[in-house]
Each structure stands twice: as C-alpha cells, then as structure tokens.
Design a protein around this nucleic acid. Structure first.
Lengths: 328, 328
DNA sequence: TTGTATGCGTTATCAC
DNA sequence: GTGATAACGCATACAA
C-alpha cells in the first residue's frame, strides 16, 4: 500500500504538503499540487480511510437504517441513495431493524461507532417517538429521516405527499360511483398512516360522503390482515376500500374473489404501493406509486446538500382496473 | 467518548492490560479481566472501530457486491447475510454494480480500501471471468461468491443446485404431457445459466425428448425479452418453456395471453424465481424457489466459519397452475 | 500477569 | 507555501 509518506519521499517534500495537496488546500503552490496529484496517480495511491477517519473523526460512510431490506420499497430507496452517495465518494452501511426498537438502537450505535457522516433512517414500527434516535446518535451525526418520520426530531425529512395521495385515490373511488368507502390503515404512531387517513377523510367530505370511524380498519397493512379487514369491510357494507398498504390490498382482493365478489363491479380497491406486483394482478390494482428510488435520491441529496428542511416526493396515482366500476 | 485509557485510569492499570482484557486474551488475570469488563460496561465504553481497524489492518465490515439491490433475489440474500453478520458483530457495506464491470471494479476497490473483513459477491453480467476480482481484491481479503460464481476463483462459493432444479422443472413439464419444450436462458458466461441449460438438456434426454438448439432462447431473462422469446417459441412450435428467469416467464405469459394461447392448456410454463409475484399471477406460475434468504445466510456462514468449499442451497419446485396441462 | 514503547496513516497545529 | 511535530485510539512485540 502506497502512503502519503511514499509520495512525499518520491517528490522530496513532506507528508504534510502531500496531505494538503490531496485535500485541495489553498495553502499549497499550484505546481506542487499538480506534481503531487500526478505522482499519487502514478503510484496508485488511495487514501487510507481508517487513518483518515480516525484522525478527522468522520468517515466517508453513510449509514442507512430500514425495517426490512427486502421490501421492494426500502430496497429501492437504498438503491436510489446508493447511486448518488457513491458518486459523491461515500460508502453505504446498511442496517435492518425488523421493526424492532431494540435492533434500531443497536444499529444506530453501531453506526455512530463507525463515525458515519450521516444516517438515513426510516424508523421501526415499534418506535413511537424519536427520543431513542436522538440519544443513540449523540447529536453529532446529521440525520435524514425518510418515509416514516418523527416531526419531533430535527433535521432533514423526505416524505411522500401522503395526504394528497390518499385524497386523490379516495376521490377517484368516489367519482367512480362507490359510496361506502372504507380505509385500511396501520399504526397511528406512524406518520404515513396518520396522513393517509387524514387525506382519505378529507376526500370523503369533499365528495359528499360521510366519514365513519367504523369503516377505518387499523392494523391492516399485511396480506393476511388485509383478508380479515376485507371480511369486516364487507360486513359493514363497504363497496370499496382505499388501503394504505399494498399487501393488504392484495389480501383483500384474494378474499373478495374467493367470496365471489366482483372487482371492480361490486367492490372497488385502491392501494398504496411500490410493489410492482400490483400491475399484474387480475384485475390489476389501482395504486399510489411512491417513487421510492426518487425518495432514496432525495434523502441522499438532503445529506449531500446539507438540507434540514422537508422534501416532498409526490405520489403518482396509477389508475388500473380494480377501481373502475364504470368500465364494467 | 470513553477510551481504554479512561478505563485504565479508573482501574489503576495500563491501557495495554485493558486492551488485552477486552480482546479476551488469556494473558490477563481473570480478576483483572472481570474488573475491566465491569468498568467498561459501567462507563459505557465502545471500541473505536477506526483506531482498531487502523492498527490491526482489518475492519469489522463485510462488503457485499450485487448487480441490483432492489431485485427481490438480491435484497433477500443481503437481508439473510445481514442478520447473521450483525449477530457476529460485523457491519455490512453495500455496493451495486448495475451489471457493469467498471462499477464492480470500483466497488471492490472501495471495499479493499475500507479493509473489509470479507467480500460477498455476485458478479455483474458484463464480467466474463474473475481476473478483475482477484486483482482488485489484492489477494488479502476473503472472497465468498454466491449465485453467479467464477470457478476459476479460489475461495468459498454458495450456489443453487441449478442443474438439479432445471432438471426437475423440465421433467415436470415433460411428465405433464408437453412434448416440445423450449428454454429461456441468459448469458452463457454466467454459471447459473450454463447449469440450468445443462439440467434442461439432461431432462429432455431422460424424458425421451430430443434436444434442439433452436429451442434454446438466449438473452431471455427480462420481461420484454421474454415476450420476444415467447413469440419465437410459438413460431418454433413449442408447447412449453422452462425459463431460467422469472420476469421473462412473466413476459411470456403476458404475450401468450394476448395471443389467446391457453396456459397451461395449450402451453406450459415453468420459471426460476425468487420473485413473490409468481404466486399471484393468473394463472399462477410454477417456479423453482431459490431460497435466497438461506443463500445469504450460507454466504455469511462461509465467511464466519472460514469455509472455502462450495455450499449448495437446494431449490424448491413450487408446482402451481402454469405447468399443469392435466388439470385443464 | 502486567507494563513500556512503538507505530498504523493521516490530519491539524504550530512555527518558519 | 512548506516543514516539523503531535495526536487520533488501539494493538502488539518486547521487557520485566
């Protein structure tokens, strides 16, 4: 391994000068700088990141914490962030929480211990507020929250326009003639579910439909819970649902099909998703696309540009078959 | 941040002793060790990984290189590996190659520069041999190849039983009465495609069907190329295909449906996949499940246990509707 | 069993 | 604009 000392020796200068030249310091003669850069390239020099990090107290690593790597949504966020961060010279360190608060704290500690340059995080469902995050991070490391965010925490946030999206999806169902529209939601401690519920509610009001708490089914974001919620929704006389999840919408569709309920003729469905399977179900599922890769890129940018504001990634209503009573 | 020096001062010993105690060295009195461990815990000590890595030349990071993070297969491998590695005290650094040789080399260099403890890799399709890998890694870092492997490279390999799996899938089609079975394959520089082709071929022979090179469609692993290959397969008089990919099987199914070809009545399909969408298509797709999470775990184990052999993860034939002419 | 001394490669603070 | 020197926190060869 070639070090700055080797380069210095080759050029007859000191390591200090080489270090400065490499760092692009203005306190070095242009000629010297060029010579250093040239020699470094020739000798195949690469900065020893450990020494550099140890000395400077900051690494060229960005940590990313997600509930589950293999959820299409999160894997795409990661992929989007990875591309931009790598371009900018950062490496990505990945942690998975499996929705566990404990695992989340451990992950954050591990990242802090690696003196990561920043943490991009979407919190676990077990977490109901962000105090553990601030604590584990120790206030030194920039935090970028995405998708699921705690307003109470400072720093950048990247979110979907959940209210707006849910509003549009629900309005679509209403305008297609469904009159008793239910909603599948998740834990209300999670920002995305609160916001989607609010958008759903507003859409009902604006459509002249009354909001009925009994038609909001909580804990309905998994495939199996979607089946159960669909059963209840039928019993409550629903003729449509807007689901805050993709898998629960799928579960609902399966259940209704088994019960012989026609979709979208007798029952309309719209979901929220980044799961590409929604396009190939029969009938295909109307969904709100979350633009997850874009969200990953935005999260990366929020860090790279040092933002501390809220970036909103708009959702896209993909109108497919499951919501369109009129065509049947 | 509390350091070993702080602990040493608190106990009236030297940093060396603390370091040894923490490292579990036998050259330290049990009492001392206990005292150190206790004090360290009380003071909330955490080893500074950079200093440790710099000194020892090895970090507690494992690098993982994949073509695309958001392919369900790879994201699950990553998730499987992450769980075991984190348990063992390692962090994961993720790199994405987008099937590019250049990106792969850069990723490997970045990992080497971080002095990762090991690299888990599934090579890009642009790579046709492993020389660049050996070179970029510099022969110092343990390599675990998974899924797509170069036999020419030393070290551990974790693969599916591709030959066996392809054999079973093809035999299934044959035993269900299909007689002109085609095959969708990919680049032959990639081990998985070579092996699946071989298994397909052997199955034909054992089923009393003749192997016809004209029925092997290369470059047919994407959704769009699957559509095109299906068109050709029809023209060649095929009545079934075994696809080495999942998306191409989906593309084929879509194309055939548009053409009014009945599946599985007139045409049988079996694919290879870790994409969960295959269970919910209509008709549902018969596939070989790659057990990707398991593969990730095996790759992690190969490193943790210092294996340098080949681990085989068996594929599971999931018999669904698309392959079963008899039931129609 | 413990202490002493040294260095990993870099960066930062001085001085000149 | 450049050089000398120290220090980041830890691990190890060697001494005791």
């Amino acid at each position: 391994m070639v070090t700055i000392t080797d380069i210095a020796a080759a050029l007859g200068v000191t390591p200090s000068t080489v270090s400065r030249a490499l760092a692009g310091s203005p306190r070095v003669k242009p000629q010297t700088r060029e010579a250093v850069l040239k020699t470094a390239a020739e000798m195949g020099y690469e900065r020893n990141v450990m020494a550099s990090s140890l000395r400077s107290g900051r690494s060229q690593i960005v940590g990313i914490v997600v509930p589950r790597i293999y959820h299409e949504f999160f894997s795409k966020v990661i992929a989007g962030a990875e591309s931009l961060l790598r371009e900018a010279g950062y490496n990505l360190m990945i942690c998975q929480t499996h929705e566990s608060l404990d695992a989340e704290v451990k992950a954050l500690k591990a990242l802090r211990n690696n003196h990561v340059a920043a943490v991009l995080l979407s919190h676990s469902l077990e977490a109901t507020d962000g105090s553990h995050i601030a604590e584990a991070l120790g206030g030194e490391i920039p935090l970028v929250q995405f998708d699921r965010v705690f307003d109470s925490l400072p720093g950048a946030k990247v979110v979907n326009d959940n209210f707006e999206g849910a509003y549009c999806a629900t309005r679509l169902l209403a305008s297609n003639g469904y009159t008793r529209i239910g909603h599948f939601s998740g834990l209300q401690s999670c920002s995305v579910f609160r916001e989607r519920l609010a958008g759903y509610r507003k859409a009902l009001e604006d459509s002249g439909l009354s909001y009925d708490e009994g038609l909001v089914f909580h804990d309905a974001i998994m495939r199996e819970s979607g089946r159960e919620a669909a059963k209840k929704a039928l019993e409550c006389g629903c003729d449509a649902i807007y689901s805050a999840g993709a898998f629960s919408a799928l579960g609902a569709m399966e259940y209704l099909r088994e019960r012989g309920v026609q979709i979208p003729g007798e029952f309309g469905i719209a979901g929220t998703a980044n799961e590409s399977f929604t396009a190939i179900t029969v009938p295909s599922l109307t969904t709100l696309d979350q633009h997850s890769i874009e969200m990953g890129r935005e999260a990366a940018k929020a860090f790279l540009y040092g933002l501390s504001s809220i970036s909103v990634v708009s959702m896209e209503l993909k109108i497919r078959e499951s919501s369109n009573r009129k065509t049947i």
